[in-house]
Design a protein around this nucleic acid. Structure first.
Length: 401
RNA sequence: GGAGGGAUGGGUGAGCGGUUAAUACCACCAGUCUGUAAAUCUGGCGCCCGGAAGGGCUACGCAGGUUCGAAUCCUGCUCCCUCCA
């Protein structure tokens, strides 16, 4: 089988390719393609939702194609309208640069750096004149843009749309022209933007790019799309225990999807897992553990994955103590005399306020040296080197001043 | 330029002079259970004091005002939306 006919490449983790026939023909022709992927250096953390597409990029790179990574230092100032409207503060040049570096450090944990060329939008937009802007905008109409679902929805439901937001797809499309992209990658929510690029290339006498759309990953809450602002994400730069733990908190019905989009396990095995989870023949926890291990290994390494699993089994399943418990230095004796345990809990950062610490105690969530605390009391009873626990994941080892 | 509508706690969104720290849902937290940090079920969810009962403070875009009393009424301001031009 020729590598470009591998169904894994064209089917798994792919939502849509426009157009699939053209794309297949390009692959078959065997010439290295110019793959385009852009990002805005405004929110630099990469999470699993992005990884779905990055894995496809990597697969293409492994076939010998070249990635052009576009740093959207101009589009970042507008903010991608795909999704919600929030006016973004202007970033300083230094911030943009720092964000871009953070992003790329994470990006290249999945993508092959040696087959990537990095380009900044400011190369061409830096010298853009008003005349250029007019020429670019004159190619499209408001009606065309309002056809796009999220604009139409916002327009229909009295939500604001900034004029700069209408510019966003145009800038992104112009990037495609400048780098002469053969294929652009993005999530399905990027479909419109990628299609504008396709159109604009055609108008500019170039061969229109292929639009490679990857599915949007559901977040750890099991309902909404994974995103940083919703807090339902797993970041590639997170600590092994965090990645592992968050993976374990996935709803069981997401197991199949994550294996499909984020791991290399063979399709037959994937089908088996789906069936087993659904049929209840195997404890889903076992699959989730495997998934969690696989993810940690991808962004860290195998040893980290095993350590994270051991930690999980110890602290969550057997409810034993983790290895590394932070220490909290108790205030002096005099101060302690005027304090209650709830104050210490708040001071140690186990709860955001004294009131909440108190509630935790009422709810039976606080343990001192392994014994449940029935009610709040004077802090003097706390011994240095004692263990204070509030909830299942927050511990602190007490130390004298 | 004109007319009308709106801004409420992390989000959506009730309330429209006192009984409202503010309904409901979501999110979140804890407990419970379980084979999981899944699911379920139960409870909690502004800050501070108090063992508790309770008390104090801050809060409904911003600034003033009316009133014994305002998220609720009035005035001005800021921002947003719709329609007309």
């Amino acid at each position: 089988m020729n590598p470009w006919e591998d169904p894994k490449l064209l089917k798994r983790g792919v939502a849509d390719i426009i157009s699939e026939a053209e794309f297949a023909a390009l692959l078959k022709a065997g010439k290295p393609l110019r793959l385009k992927m852009g990002f805005d250096p405004s929110a630099p953390d990469i999470h699993l939702g992005h990884v779905v597409g990055l894995r496809k990029l990597r697969q293409m790179q492994d076939l010998g194609h070249k990635l052009i990574l576009i740093v959207g230092d101009w589009t970042a100032q507008i903010g991608d309208p795909s999704g919600r409207s929030a006016t973004r503060p202007m970033l300083t040049a230094a911030q943009v640069k720092a964000n871009a570096e953070t992003y790329m450090a994470q990006f290249f944990t999945v993508v092959d750096r040696s087959k990537t060329e990095v380009r900044w939008q400011s190369e061409w937009f830096g010298k853009f004149s008003l005349e250029d802007v007019l020429r670019l905008t004159s190619k499209f109409t408001v009606a065309q843009f309002l056809a796009r679902e999220d604009f139409a929805k916002r327009y229909g439901s009295d939500q604001p749309i900034a004029i700069t937001e209408l510019l966003y797809p145009l800038l992104q499309a112009y990037d495609s022209v400048m780098i002469e992209a053969d294929v652009e990658f993005g999530g399905t929510d990027q479909k419109f933007n990628l299609l504008v690029g396709r159109d604009l290339q055609g108008m500019s006498g170039q061969r229109p790019q292929q639009c490679f759309l990857v599915p949007i990953l559901t977040g750890t809450d099991g309902t909404k799309k994974m995103s940083k602002s919703l807090g339902n994400y797993i970041g590639v730069a997170e600590a092994p225990e965090e990645i592992y733990g968050k993976a374990m908190s996935l709803p069981d019905n997401l197991i199949g999807l994550y294996f499909e989009l984020l791991t290399d396990i063979p399709d037959e095995e994937l089908a088996n897992i789906r069936q087993a989870v659904q049929g209840g023949s195997v404890n889903p926890m076992e699959f989730k553990k495997r998934l969690a291990r696989d993810l940690v290994a991808q962004f860290h390494d195998k040893d980290a994955a095993e350590a994270a699993e051991a930690g999980f089994e110890r602290t969550v399943q057997r409810k034993e103590l983790p290895d590394d418990i932070p220490t909290f230095v108790l205030p002096s004796k005099d101060e302690l005399a005027n304090m209650k345990i709830s104050h210490v809990i708040a001071a140690a950062g186990l709860a955001p306020s004294v009131g909440q610490a108190r509630r935790l105690i009422e709810q039976g969530a606080v343990e001192v040296d392994g014994a449940r605390l029935e009610s709040d009391g004077p802090a003097e009873s706390l011994k240095a080197s004692g263990l204070l626990k509030a909830g299942k994941r927050k511990f602190v080892r007490l130390a004298a001043k």
